[in-house]
Amino acid sequence: MATGETGFSDIVYDLISVQYHALKGGHDYGQYVRDAEKAGKKDLAQFFRESMDEDSRRAARCHQFLTQLSGTKEAGPAAG
């Protein structure tokens, strides 16, 4: 498995990237919920809450995969 300049395999890098963006999105959606509620748009607030929940599940799933790969040859030398 390829290890780029980071010393981690591409797949570990990809999982970390997806996890980061899911966590960042989930954090940002909190503000979007507040904005929608302030504007009296309950349907939009609910949509943003659902998006936050989806990103939370996505980040947790990435964490599970990263845990499985941790310390394996598939993760690359930096994770071993």
Rank of each mutant, 00 (worst) to 15 (best):
F8E: 06
R58P: 00
H27R: 14
S70K: 13
T72S: 15
R49F: 03
E37F: 04
A79Y: 02
R57S: 09
L66T: 01
R61F: 03
F48T: 01
D35N: 12
L15P: 00
H63E: 15
S17K: 11
I11D: 09
H21F: 10
E5P: 04
Q68M: 12
F8D: 04
D28L: 10
Y20Q: 15
G80P: 03
L66Q: 04
D28E: 14
E5V: 10
A36D: 05
T67L: 14
H27P: 02
E5C: 13
K73G: 10
A22D: 02
S51Q: 08
Y32D: 14
G30H: 03
Y13N: 08
K42S: 14
R58D: 03
A22P: 00
H63V: 08
D14P: 04
F65R: 13
K38I: 12
A60F: 06
R61W: 05
S17Y: 06
G26S: 04
D55K: 05
S56T: 06
A79R: 07
Y13P: 00
D55N: 08
K24G: 07
D10Y: 08
L69D: 03
A2L: 10
D35F: 05
G40D: 09
R58C: 06
T6L: 12
A36Y: 00
R57P: 01
A60E: 08
A78M: 10
T6E: 05
H63C: 14
R61Q: 09
G30W: 01
A79E: 09
V33C: 15
C62N: 02
Q31N: 12
E50C: 12
G26W: 00
D43A: 15
D14E: 14
T6A: 08
K41L: 14
I11W: 07
A59Y: 00
T3Y: 05
K41R: 12
C62F: 00
